[in-house]
């Protein structure tokens, strides 16, 4: 239904110009991984390691220096409605209501007008905003705004959902609430998800598998399967153990890295 493959992906940005020759800052080199259909994968890593860059390339908003991202075996060449993106900064259209925002992608898809409304309303419901369907984003709370962002991405019924620290701008309580909302929705829809975060707890709570990146030029230093049953309980000792393991992997503890690298 929706498989995402990252193959030999490299990205470098030009930095300061020196004597007319630009120097290059390599963000990552030959990055390689894939996400199975219906799998929820979190990518975690220190700030500046290129997580957003990776997601932008997958979304088709940024070009790779070499290598490609494949969605269902076709290479990504620019943005497309087979991928729904949820942005860290929400990026809602302030001139459209909640319903209008969620319907935006449907209109681009050429869904007939009558069906657009019905389908938008279905997703307004799914993200729990039916009472606020006619509100403009300026009058919603942060949590509600990101529900709209999630609804907008889900409404186009994409093969793959790409999320860049979607809850990073929310307070702790709202974030946990949103994680529950997402977890529920995911169990219902079983989308393929690439989820970026730097919250270890969030990664363990949500995903089937976690990929850990290190500092630039970054590579995957650890891959960890999360086999806990859902809905997950943060106080479960198993949960705590996985959080600890990830924590030491991110801190670059070599022994642990090797150990989990085998996983």
């Amino acid at each position: 239904m929706g498989e995402l493959r990252v193959e030999q992906l490299s990205k470098a940005f030009p930095t300061a110009q020196k004597w007319g020759r630009s120097k290059w800052h390599t963000i990552f080199n030959n990055l390689q991984f894939s996400i199975k259909s219906g799998e929820f994968v979190c990518v975690i890593g220190p700030s500046g390691c290129g997580k957003s860059t990776l997601l932008s390339i997958a979304a088709g908003l940024e070009e790779a220096s070499s290598g490609s991202v494949y969605v269902n075996d076709s290479p990504v060449r620019g943005p497309g409605l087979d991928r729904g993106v949820v942005f860290q900064e929400f990026a809602l259209f302030p001139w459209l209501t909640v319903r209008g925002n969620i319907a935006f992608g449907l209109k681009s898809k050429g869904v007939p007008q009558a069906e657009v409304l019905a389908r938008a309303d279905k997703y307004v419901d799914l993200v729990g905003l039916s009472k606020f369907a006619d509100y403009y984003p300026s009058r919603l709370s942060g949590g509600m705004r990101q529900r709209v962002g999630l609804g907008r991405a889900l409404a186009i019924e994409p093969s793959v959902l790409l999320m860049d620290e979607p809850f990073g701008a929310l307070d702790a309580l709202t974030r946990e609430n949103m994680q529950l909302v997402l977890s529920d929705i995911w169990q219902e829809t079983r989308k393929t998800v690439l989820f970026i975060t730097h919250d270890i707890d969030e990664a363990v709570f949500l995903s089937d598998r976690v990929l850990v990146l290190n500092e630039t030029p970054s590579r995957i230093v650890c891959e960890l399967k999360i086999d806990l049953p859902r809905a997950r309980d943060r106080s479960d000792p198993q949960f705590q153990r996985l959080v600890k393991q990830l924590d030491s992997a991110i801190r670059g503890d070599n022994n642990t890295t090797k150990h989990f690298g085998d996983n």
């Binding site: 908003l61 991928r83 729904g84 993106v85 942005f87 935006f104 681009s108 186009i156």
Partner: peptide
């Protein structure tokens, strides 16, 4: 980010 969102959503 609005332009990026616009491009992503078609």
């Amino acid at each position: 980010s609005l332009i990026r969102a616009g491009r992503v959503f078609g």
